[in-house]
Design a protein around this nucleic acid. Structure first.
Lengths: 215, 215
DNA sequence: TTTGCTACTATACACTTGCATAATCATTCT
DNA sequence: AGAATGATTATGCAAGTGTATAGTAGCAAA
């Protein structure tokens, strides 16, 4: 007997499965994230996964791409938008990196899972590189603009070093938040982030909390 | 036919297997780190692992404990030693966290592997908490002493927030170093770390590079 | 040397794994 | 309506999984 089923557009089904994969990894870990477990989570049979993704590896890579996108998108959106002063945008960049879905502890589990694969499978390594460089370039650009607006004239290399430091604080706070979970207040975390960036760069940032696109 | 073997003291064999487990995880990932793979790496049969560790889970937990120890020991050693000024010790703490075996990219893979398990298995969660708190308390203590030495009088809460920020920079730089591997110079990484801590705390740190126990 | 202990090996078992294959059923095109 | 297409299910397989169990052999004590 064959159970009845609904047909779905290619794209939606793929997304469903990728999302189910992420759910599985976050909930039961990569070891228990089998093709069957993902299928069950997505409400389909395991055979279907192989139909849409040639192999489990492909599914995992697709899931990794999705995670990178979810983690960097909010912050990169700030870079793309030309609204606000450089200081404003820098503050919103920090805010975007430490709040919302990005700050979800679940995201840390997923990120850690894939990071642990980077030195194992070169495919992950490549995916990581792309996302990482985009993120740090964004910080570098924003820092450069903010410093320029203050009439400062750091060298390109100095700016790069500052970007590394700022990137590190953001990453570190993000991890700390994801690991300590409910223990640390998200608002406090953000406040520390803003204050740290101010200290690192020697600038003052406006308060951009909550209202994502304040003018 | 039974192959010949050497008997070893309980402790050494356990250490061997834990080390083999870490090697496996770093080289082939947690998925391929099977009991048999670990046994092969340690040069014993799989049955022996179960003899020394009741289950694979126990082996993994033991491996996690080992990693935590390897990662925090050098820095905590700085805290324990009473040599040098507070500023000196703070600088050496940063140095210890970003150099030597701790900075080995392999360490990042291992760390990420276990972090990805924290939200899955509460056992890992507990192990993590212990190590993490010890580390951040150490930073808090060192910062408090350094600020006091400069005649500053931050509140306990302010110091805690600064510790969170400093911890974040160190963690972030450590990760950045582990992921970018040979791309970033370790000395530069350390220099950025020291400079960042100086900026975050508004203090000046001595140069303690290479000579771990300079006066 | 003999005895006892247990670290250690060898083997097997039940179960899970990713993947393959063939049969179905929903949809679309003519 | 009828045929073609391909998304979807059902089922099976070979390899690999953690673990259990029985036997072997190194080593210490007598």
């Amino acid at each position: 007997m064959t159970a009845s089923f609904r047909r779905m557009p290619e794209f939606d089904r793929r997304s469903d499965m990728i999302e189910a994969t992420l759910d599985c990894i976050a909930e039961v870990g990569i070891q228990a994230t089998t093709v069957r477990a993902v299928a069950a989570h997505a409400g389909v049979t395991n055979g279907l996964i192989r139909h849409h993704f040639a192999s489990k590896d492909n599914l995992m890579i697709a899931a990794y791409r999705r995670i990178i996108e979810m983690m960097t998108e909010p912050a990169l959106a700030v870079l793309r938008s030309d609204e606000g002063t450089p200081h404003d945008r820098l503050a919103r960049f920090v805010l975007a990196s430490l709040s919302g879905p990005v700050a979800d502890p679940r995201m840390l589990s997923l990120w850690a899972t894939f990071v642990s694969q980077i030195h194992v499978d070169p495919t992950y390594s490549e995916e990581h590189r792309t996302g990482y460089l985009a993120f740090r370039d964004a910080i570098e650009t924003l820092i450069g603009q903010a410093l320029a607006a203050d009439g400062r004239s750091e060298s390109a290399e100095q700016i790069k070093h500052l970007a590394i430091a700022v990137n590190a604080v953001i990453d570190g706070l993000w991890i700390e938040g994801g690991l300590s979970a409910a223990e640390i207040d998200e608002d406090l975390q953000i406040a520390i982030g803003i204050r740290s960036v101010e200290a690192l760069l020697g600038i003052e940032l406006p308060d951009v909390r909550q209202n994502g696109k304040a003018s």
